[in-house]
Amino acid sequence: MNKLCTLCSCQRAWLLVAVLAAGLPGCVTINIYFPAAAAEKAADKVIDEIWQLPPDQAAPVDHAVSPPASPAAVTPVNDSGSQPANRKE
């Protein structure tokens, strides 16, 4: 009985291995898909380099350190009641 059981579990183990092995190609197949988004990103990068385009317009320039030519041009915020008071309901 004991011997028989050992055989059984051994067979079950092999059966499991066989089933899992059959599932492995599925795993691999899912893995090899074409990464379209990555390819698009790569294409943009390569084309920008070849055509020497600036790396997309989506890079806002920070003007924080631009020295003002005429300080008078800076208009201070007028807070002398030009804004209507918030309505309270």
Partner: peptide, 28 residues
Amino acid sequence: TRYIAGVFLAFCFMAAFSHAQAAADLNV
């Protein structure tokens, strides 16, 4: 059997994860 299944699952996760990392960028 649990051990075998565990190893197999770990392998699958590793394969999927390494692919996810590889897919983040194409090497140019």
